[in-house]
């Protein structure tokens, strides 16, 4: 059962991880995107629709990424160009995405697709314990293994990453050195949305293999909270995402093994966990917060 829970943690945490990595990039660049949940919803529907129409789940991933990127582009226009309040814009976009996906998703409810299937890694999946936990999953899970360290490397070892971090820490330092804060923030926000979209697509075309209304069920909001716990570090996002994945998988594993626990109580576990972590860490995480984000938190300003 432990192995089931842990394997479920990896599978269930993957979507949160993509969204968390995306939000990390966005916030490192100085933009908080509460619309992450919405970008995941659009990604889930976009991914499902493209997979249904083309029969190719990889094209579905692309569709999901584009859908998430599109929503975040709107966010970027509002908060970077128009300097609108980041919280208001993000929340509004979430509700917009919820409505849009409910409306246009109707025709995909209960439609069959050619979903991702688990691809056991030859050899590695045979390892007792570790094999089923880590190496018997759909391809997007494996991509995520690589994505976290790669995003860490890009953020901390490349010029692009340096520009993103500078945009989030002290944007005028970019201007002084002849870069455009606006361009960097647009790129970071849109890239973040694309990753959230992939996370959403993972839910619909690899995890649940179906589309239904509001199927993200708060994972996007958990991802936003996770970014804070992980102190804006992609590698910690990975660990945190699997922790939340475990909380999510607990419900289904307990159910299948015949232990009767109230379904609604189990669904609340990830959110209770979020509150507990927030309470424990308190203000401490804010020491690691990018300075420009503190401006957003403290004054609800977006400059």
């Amino acid at each position: 059962m432990i192995i089931d829970i842990l394997a479920g943690a990896v599978r269930g945490g993957t979507s949160i991880m993509y969204a968390g990595l995306g939000e990390t990039i966005s916030e490192r660049g100085g933009v908080i995107n509460l619309g992450t949940e919405g970008a995941m919803l659009l990604g889930a529907l976009g991914g499902y629709a493209v997979t249904a129409e083309t029969g190719n789940p990889w094209l579905g991933v692309l569709g999901g990424a584009l859908a998430g990127a599109l929503l975040s582009l709107v966010h970027a226009v509002l908060v970077v160009s128009r300097r609108a309040n980041q919280f208001a814009s993000g929340l509004t976009l979430y509700f917009l995405a919820l409505g849009v996906t409910s409306l246009f998703g109707v025709s995909y409810v209960s439609r069959q697709i050619n979903a991702f299937t688990p691809v056991p890694v030859p050899g590695l999946s045979e390892i007792p314990g570790l094999g089923p936990i880590l190496f018997d999953h759909d391809p997007l899970v494996y991509v995520a293994y690589v994505a976290a360290p790669v995003i860490w490397w890009v953020l901390f070892r490349t010029r692009v990453g340096l520009l993103v971090r500078t945009a989030g820490e002290r944007s005028e330092a970019l201007e002084v050195n002849g870069y455009s804060v606006r361009a960097v923030r647009y790129c970071a926000t849109v890239a973040g949305g694309a990753l959230a979209g992939i996370g959403g697509a993972h839910i619909s075309i690899a995890y649940a293999n179906s589309w239904f209304e509001n199927m993200i069920a708060g994972r996007g909001f958990i991802a936003v909270a996770l970014v804070i716990f992980a102190m804006w570090n992609p590698v910690r996002i990975m660990a945190g995402a699997y922790l939340f994945g475990a909380a999510l998988s607990l419900a289904s594993v307990l159910q299948t093994s015949g232990i009767a626990v109230n379904q609604f109580a189990l669904n609340a576990v990830p959110f209770v966990l979020t509150l507990v972590v927030l309470a424990i860490l308190g203000r401490r995480t804010m020491l690691a917060a990018p300075d420009e984000l503190l401006k957003v938190f403290d004054n609800s300003r977006t400059t």
């Binding site: 500078t166 820490e169 002290r170 300075d291």
Partner: peptide
């Protein structure tokens, strides 16, 4: 200088 970055990163910028 950007306080959160190292000296080398600031110069790289």
């Amino acid at each position: 200088l950007v306080p959160a970055l190292t000296v080398a990163e600031n110069i790289a910028l």
